[in-house]
């Protein structure tokens, strides 16, 4: 057990973190380096303002669309907000960042809040994944990579919660190991949308704004 722990907290941790950072930065940089031609037509509105606007306005779907995708929006928010709260405010996580990455910590949430938030996140994730499986459109669109992403996240979250008893080192290590696998998988998958969404929204917002349309 000790050797496994030493491996996971030592070399393997550095390896997975490196793959993550290099992968994410590299993938973004290479995509962006393809460049695009600058628009020569007389703009009807400011493209850069439109870009910023779209990054934020896309968090709220338009009314006509919302009526059609209510379930997806609610489940989507439940999962994503839940995940980020867990990622940044769960006591064990902050402890980990403090010890291995940043050297400092910040206030964390109490245990009961942790549980409630993870329940919300789980409900959201399960519904989203089921929708991916059961809706004919997303079923056809999804490839193995998408399912691996969902399932990996699910098991990372699950093992994290199963380790809540904090009385078995093995449970904690399983969680850590899965989280590291996730880090390695991340840059090769559509989980990249965590970062790319800023750019893709920015681009479309700029394009529409150039034409005088708020998107």
């Amino acid at each position: 057990m000790e050797t496994i722990a030493a491996f996971l907290e030592g070399p393997f941790w550095y390896f997975s973190a490196a793959v993550f950072v290099v992968g994410v930065v590299g993938r973004l940089a290479l995509a962006l380096s393809l460049g695009s031609s600058k628009s020569l037509s007389v703009p009807r509105g400011s493209a850069s303002a439109g870009a910023v606007r779209a990054v934020f306005s896309r968090f709220v779907p338009r009314r006509d669309f919302y009526r059609r995708i209510r379930l997806e929006v609610i489940a989507g928010y439940a999962f994503h907000v839940g995940l980020f709260v867990l990622l940044f405010f769960a006591a064990p996580h902050v402890e980990f960042y403090k010890e291995y990455i940043l050297g400092f910590g910040w206030p964390t949430m109490p245990r009961w809040a942790f549980i409630v938030v993870s329940e919300i996140a789980f409900a959201g994730l399960i519904v989203l994944w089921l929708r991916r499986l059961l809706h004919p459109v997303s079923r056809k669109l999804s490839d193995a990579g998408d399912h691996i992403g969902s399932i990996l996240i699910f098991f990372v979250m699950l093992t994290g919660c199963l380790a809540l008893g904090e009385d078995h080192e093995s449970l904690r290590l399983i969680h850590l190991f899965l989280a590291q696998l996730l880090l390695i998988y991340f840059p090769f998958s559509s989980l990249m949308h965590t970062f790319t969404f800023v750019f893709s929204r920015g681009y479309i917002g700029a394009g529409f704004a150039h034409h005088g349309v708020k998107a």
Binding site: I115, S118, E119, F122, A123, I126, L158, C161, L162, A163, L164, G165, D167, H168, S170, L171
Partner: peptide, 21 residues
């Protein structure tokens, strides 16, 4: 011991989710 601990945490965690579903 680990399996039981995990089951207990997991069971308690998913109880409320089941109630919602």
């Amino acid at each position: 011991g680990a399996i039981a601990s995990a089951s207990k945490e997991g069971h308690n965690l998913f109880g409320p989710v089941f109630i919602v579903s």
